[in-house]
């Protein structure tokens, strides 16, 4: 059983099929960047990208993701260690406090930017409307980031950070 994480192949041997992707990352591979907040898809702290799309890794069985490209928070920066535009924006706008939900927020926001680029709607997007990163409303960001709880209450700063990254990318 192999997983491809942040561009690296990892051999997990004969993995117990009960192992979630989240627990495989953390407890088997020691990749602790991804966090467990609720373990039931109710908080978003464990968000990772699978083939470029965000999911809750706590509800994914690792064995079902053999062959998928998995990206965690540790895979968001450039190869030379330069933070991504979102990571930089999160620091600039103080978009976290305790930092526990941050990995999930960043993975989620990374996916969000791609979803908007692809024109994928949220519940707030009018039918037939064109989406663009430069014209993404704050309410769209709020709705699209609502799958990531932050108890410290950094939401307002997260919106500012995502907006900055969206504008930079547009």
């Amino acid at each position: 059983m192999k997983l491809q994480i942040d561009g690296q192949d990892h051999d997990l041997g004969d993995l117990d099929p009960r192992t979630t992707l989240l627990d495989a990352l953390r407890e088997r591979l020691g990749l602790m960047g991804t966090k467990k907040g609720c373990d039931h898809g109710q908080c978003g702290a464990c968000t990772v990208l699978v083939n470029g799309r965000r999911i809750n890794s706590c509800l994914a069985l690792a064995v079902m993701h053999e062959g998928d490209a998995i990206t965690t928070v540790a895979g968001l920066e450039a190869d030379d260690g330069t933070p991504s535009a979102l990571q930089e924006a999160f620091m600039e706008h103080d978009a976290f406090q305790c930092g526990y939900c941050t990995a999930g927020q960043l993975c989620s926001a990374t996916s969000l930017l791609r979803e908007v680029k692809r024109g994928e709607p949220s519940v707030l997007t009018p039918m037939g409307a064109e989406l663009s990163l430069s014209e993404l409303s704050d309410d769209e960001i709020r709705e699209r980031m609502s799958g990531n709880l932050c108890r410290c209450g950094a939401y307002a700063n997260i919106v500012a950070a995502v907006r900055q990254a969206a504008e930079a990318e547009s």
Partner: peptide, 16 residues
């Protein structure tokens, strides 16, 4: 002053 532990937190490198 920006959070000095920010770089760790945005990389998932702050050990809880």
């Amino acid at each position: 002053t920006r959070r000095v532990d920010g770089p760790k937190k945005v990389r998932g490198a702050a050990p809880y």
